[in-house]
Amino acid sequence: MDIMSAFIRRPATASVLSLIGVLLFYFIFGGVDLEKLGGAASWLNYAARIGIVAIPVGLLMISGEIDISIGAMIPAGAMATAIISGYYGLPIIFGILGALGIGVIVGLINGVLAVRTTVPTLIITLGTLIAMQGIVLAGSVILTGNASVPLSAPDWAKTLFGQLIFGGSHQVVIIWWLAFTLLGWFILHQSRFGNWIFAMGGDKVSARNAGIPVDRFTILLFVLTATSASFVGMCHAILFNSAQVSGGMNDIFNIIASVVVGGVLLSGGFGSVPGIFIGTITFAIVNKGIDFTDIDRNWSSLIIGVMLLAAVLMNNRFRNMALNYVPRKKDKGGSAK
């Protein structure tokens, strides 16, 4: 009972229940082969792709802002790598630095605009999203005359960013995803900076008055989201030996949906990294796991929509329960964490 009530008060609860719900649904109505699904790489690879970006985006959303320019930053990172190291043939390290550099620049622009103006960050990053789409397309066509650029990376880069591991079809980005998750968990839940992020999402003015460098932290979080997105693009370019202008647009809403399913409050101040992690897995299983069921693939969007609504409703419910939680007498609070 005590464990149950402690479980329900955590931000990750709804994502765990969503995951169980989705698996049950696929099992009962789709006749899914759980063993096959568990061993499959497709959903894990997809989870890693959106999960690497979902962690910083989740932190940013907890701090009360949002970044949708990530959608353009994934192809931007891929194209930067492919143009620099593929088309111009420079060493891959320049391609990697170019991709990350573009992320840092766009993140800085987003962050500085966010702290210098009162424009909602949804609008600011919508602007940079569209602008970056234009830059990537026009830049690619002007520089290379093509919207698709081949790239062949040396072995060390392949090993680090674009390898298939476990002798199968799992991509090495899965490891990066786990590392990002661990880092995000440490920052948000273990370091004092996590407390700052929560405080910024709760009330920016009070956070600033408490001595938290709100502006610098906001800019830093925007740099992290944009750079993580360009990092994912770079990994994919190295893995697939090419980059296309078009890829990555769907990712915006998939990433934000994963974060929201993971229990992050859209208006900030509440959420957790384990929640985002499980939310990402849930989303990836719905999206890619449907291939392992008898359900027609075309239904997957419907399932995602229903799951998203159910998860958000559960999140609201559990957040209220957490707010109204009063420990009984003699109940030692230490069990709650």
């Binding site: 370091s191 009070s206 964490k337």
Partner: peptide, 30 residues
Amino acid sequence: TFPLMTIGRSFFVGVEPTKRIGPFRIFDRK
């Protein structure tokens, strides 16, 4: 002003107590 933070966390916003575990300085929740 931080309704969704815990009592302990909000009490120490900006002046969090930390403890060392190996190379890491972590928020001392207890």
